[in-house]
Structures are given as C-alpha cells and as structure tokens.
Amino acid sequence: MTLPPVDIARISEWLAASGLTALELRGPGCHLRLRQDRGTVTPMEAPSARQVVTSPGIGRFLTTHPLHSTPLAPEGSVVALGQIIALLQIDALLMPVTAPAGSVLAAVLAEPGEIVGYGTPLLELHPIAE
C-alpha cells in the first residue's frame, strides 16, 4: 500500500463532507477502508478463486441499470471477464460490479434494491464448463 498520508487526509475530508459513514476503495494489491471518525489502512487479501462475488463497498445493490427494465446479466447467462454484472449505487454514483472471470451467473444472492456492506455476497458464479 503506497497511498500517501496527505491523500488519505483529503479522502477523509471528502468523506466527511459526503455524509457517508464509511468508504471502501480497492484496487490491485490495495484496499483502503475509512470510517467517518477514523481512517485506517489495511492491506487487501490476494484475489481469491472463489466464485462468489462480494460487494466492493457500501451501497444499494442493483441488478439492473436504473434507466432500464432488463437485468445487466440475468441468472443463467454467460458473463465475460470484466463484464458489468451488477451495480452498487452510492447516492448519485453508480459503481460497477464486474465478473472476475468468464463464467455463468448462477444465482443472485443479495436482494436487489437493498443496502449491502463491504463483503456482502452478491452473486454466485459457476465455471462455464459446469
């Protein structure tokens, strides 16, 4: 983790102004977790081979884009690596939930429209071969 302290301070300020209680940011080899009253940085685990996609943060779990009526990836559909298969709505922002590998979307685990937290299991993926 190489995030300079000054950036954490800036992120913390914005977080405070945003009215959110917590924020999770992640990228390859890095995971930043901030709460309103304290900022801590913890290293992220290496990506696992599990086929359960968990929530990358706190927000409203959506399986369809708010403008659309059909799901981004219906149950049973084949999804490609990096394909957006669900969304996490944080107020006005929409964050993508992407497929970690080419696979079949076997089941939607979380309730669409509900608020989920970091790590909440969202979607179950099966290998295409199965």
């Binding site: 190489t2 995030l3 950036d7 800036r10 992120i11 914005w14 977080l15 945003s18 924020l23 940011l25 992640r26 990228g27 390859p28 080899g29 890095c30 930043l32 922002l93 964050m95």
Partner: peptide
C-alpha cells in the same frame, strides 16, 4: 472525486 482518488491510490 473519492472514487477517482481511491482508484489512483490503488
């Protein structure tokens, strides 16, 4: 901004 900064840090 938060999102972009987090991505840049990562």
């Amino acid at each position: 901004n938060l999102q972009r900064l987090g991505a840049a840090a990562a």
